[in-house]
Amino acid sequence: MKRRKEKGGHHSGTTCFSSKIVCGECGNFYGSKVWHSTSKYRRAIWQCNHKFKGSAKCGTPHFAEATLKQSFLNAFNQLITNKEEIMENCEIIKKVLTDTADLNSEAEKLQGEIVVVTELIRQCVEENAHSIIDQAQYQQRYNGLVARYEKAKEKLEKTEELRQARRVKREQLDAFISTLLRQDSVLTEFDETLWFAIADKVTVYASDNIQFTFRDGTVIEA
């Protein structure tokens, strides 16, 4: 969702390729377009959404969905020829990139900090309510504690985002490995379920240079 927002894309739900194909020249998403919609020459193609929006037109090509599907088949069949090596690499990647031990420790410290500061703020407010205190000093102390609280809260939110991202990455890699284990023959027909399970994105540079990035980080030109 974050990547779609950054690239100005959206997911319409009408096709499995929405927000998955990236222009290698400008970085924007490809979108589905219909040419000659009211004539017998009607044709659906995929094209960079930003192709004609800038001062300079993107040079990346348009192509039919059938071309994309065939390219995916080619890339996937290349992938399974190195299945054992790729699965070993996936296990290494999981250990390095999805471990949350350090983040768990950081989150615990930040939660403790928030509890402490919350109590200090409560005491500060209570003391001001029951004692004669210089209000300028009180406000300075109070503002300092609130700033400390907000800083800890912001750090905790970022830590939680990183923890969630690592958990999602682990789930994706587990699904990727499971899919590879089940596939023991060359793929001859496009499988949408398989596409969702293992494909991360497609980057188009030229008609003869379409690169598929799989969920384990493997990039194959098809």
Rank of each mutant, 00 (worst) to 15 (best):
K94A: 09
W35K: 15
T98A: 04
E157D: 15
D174E: 12
A75V: 08
Y205I: 03
A152H: 05
L79R: 01
N74C: 13
K95A: 14
T118R: 10
T188N: 10
Q47A: 08
G27P: 04
E127G: 07
A107F: 04
Q70E: 15
R42T: 14
E160N: 14
Q123M: 13
T213H: 04
Y205Q: 05
A75G: 08
H50E: 02
Y30I: 05
R148T: 06
F29N: 04
G54M: 12
I86K: 02
C90A: 13
Q172P: 05
T67V: 15
F76V: 07
A199I: 13
I177V: 14
C90E: 00
S12H: 08
V146T: 07
N209G: 00
T14I: 09
T14K: 15
Q137C: 08
I93D: 06
A75I: 10
K201H: 01
V115W: 02
M87D: 00
S207T: 12
R163V: 11
I198W: 02
I132Y: 06
C90R: 03
Q164F: 11
V34G: 02
F176R: 01
F29G: 02
C124E: 11
H10C: 08
I45P: 01
H62F: 11
H50A: 11
S32L: 12
C90L: 04
E221M: 03
V219N: 11
V202R: 00
N28M: 11
V204F: 00
G27L: 10
G59V: 13
T193P: 00
W195G: 01
A206M: 04
K169W: 03
G8N: 09
L187M: 14
N143Q: 15
H11L: 08
K20M: 09
K158Q: 13
E91I: 10
I92K: 10
E113W: 03
